[in-house]
Structure formats: structure tokens, C-alpha cells
Simulated scan of single mutants.
Amino acid sequence: MTASRWAGLGVLLLLGGCREPVSTPSAPVPPPAAAQPLLTVEGVTVRYKGQLLPWEGPTERWKQVLGPPSREELGILTWDELGLFVYDQDARVPGPESLSVLFGRTMHSPLTEGAPDFWPRKSFSGRLLVDGAAISSGSTLDEINRDKKGASFARDYMSGVYSYYVEDFYVRLDYGHDRTLTSFGLSKALPDSTPPSP
């Protein structure tokens, strides 16, 4: 075979290999697991991996969704591996009264030593979205309020505490004395308490 025939055959093979494949419709590719939020709070609705954590009724549903708590004492359920704890202490209030997500261990004052025994052994390492704002241990108040829909967090009764009320719930961020985020919390108003008027 001559050189020109080899060249012609190479061009035909090259052109034949460049044809576009026939496209077939396919299902949308889901986002990677890391991109999916792990814990979401929309208003007062809480979901873990898309499953509802209901405020009404017994905490059994929370145990089904989150798994068995690592510890349960005096109405405080702690999930060490998840970095979460729930209060379910008041018999007048059906379901849990509050949820706290632990991001760090720095207290409000440098004079405070140690942490409460019921705090999770590990900090929350998943993704938390609150009304569209991603919250992590490095989140600043300005970043959260910038990205958040609905009410903004505002200075509360002491330095390092920022909150707002929505429906009958108190929503709160706690920053330590070094300005790192310690926790996010969502609590029901107790029957004998009323939120202050704006």
C-alpha cells in the first residue's frame, strides 16, 4: 500500500471515529452526597437527610431518623457522633422542646472551664442549612445573615448570643469569647412563657 493510501485510510478512520454518539435520554445525575445538606431548618421545620424530625409527638421518631442516642439522661438525648442533643424534659410540651447543634467548645467567657456533661463528644461535622444559609464552625454572623432568608440573627441578652423568634420558637446562635461559633439552637416557647414583642 502506498503512502497516499495509508494517509487516506488514516483520514477515514479519524473521521469515522469523530462521529457524535447517538444520545439516549437518561435520568438526571443526583448531586454528590457531600453537596446534599445533612440537616436543614426551614422556619421551624427540621429535616435530617431529608427525613422530617417532628416537634409534636414522642421523640421516638427522632430516634428512628437519627439512630439511637449515645446517652439519654434526665430528658436530654445526646448523639455523640452527630454532634447533636435534644431536650425532652417538660411533660406539658408534647415532643422535644429543643434541638442544639454543637460546632465548637469555646464558652462565652474565658473564665468558664469545661463544658456540660451532656454535650456531644464530637462537634457537628455535617452540613447545616438554616433558611438557605450554610452554617459551619467557621461561619460569621454577617455571612449567615447575608445568605439567610427570613428573619436575621440579632444581638441578644449578652455578647456572643444572637437570636430571633419565628412562630413559637426561639432560634439562637452562640459564639465563644474567641468569636468562633459554638452552637445553633432551636427551642419551643414553653407554655407559661411568651416571646417578647418586637
Results as ranks from 00 to 15, higher is better:
138 G>W: 07
132 G>F: 04
10 G>F: 12
20 E>S: 06
12 L>D: 05
115 A>H: 02
61 R>I: 13
90 D>P: 04
187 S>F: 06
26 S>M: 14
23 S>T: 14
63 K>A: 12
51 Q>I: 01
137 S>M: 12
196 P>G: 00
28 P>C: 15
22 V>T: 15
26 S>T: 15
34 A>M: 10
80 D>F: 06
154 A>W: 04
91 A>P: 01
22 V>N: 13
28 P>T: 14
35 A>H: 06
11 V>P: 14
151 A>N: 14
80 D>C: 10
176 G>V: 12
42 E>R: 10
100 S>A: 10
150 G>F: 10
83 G>Q: 14
31 P>R: 15
73 E>V: 13
13 L>H: 07
171 V>W: 06
52 L>Q: 01
23 S>P: 12
15 L>V: 12
15 L>Q: 02
162 Y>F: 13
84 L>Q: 04
67 G>K: 04
70 S>W: 08
192 D>Q: 07
153 F>A: 04
145 N>P: 09
73 E>T: 07
115 A>I: 09
110 P>D: 00
44 V>A: 11
163 S>I: 06
119 W>A: 11
118 F>T: 10
184 F>L: 13
161 V>S: 03
106 T>Y: 09
152 S>Q: 11
85 F>E: 09
175 Y>M: 08
142 D>W: 03
194 T>F: 14
94 P>G: 08
99 L>E: 02
106 T>S: 05
96 P>Q: 07
51 Q>H: 09
2 T>R: 13
16 G>R: 02
42 E>S: 04
52 L>V: 10
179 R>G: 09
143 E>N: 14
127 R>D: 00
127 R>H: 00
194 T>Q: 12
47 R>M: 05
2 T>I: 04
147 D>S: 10
5 R>K: 08
64 Q>K: 15
80 D>Q: 15
74 L>Y: 07
16 G>I: 03
110 P>C: 01
113 E>C: 00
31 P>H: 14
21 P>E: 05
155 R>Q: 08
185 G>S: 14
20 E>Y: 00
14 L>A: 15
186 L>T: 07
197 S>V: 15
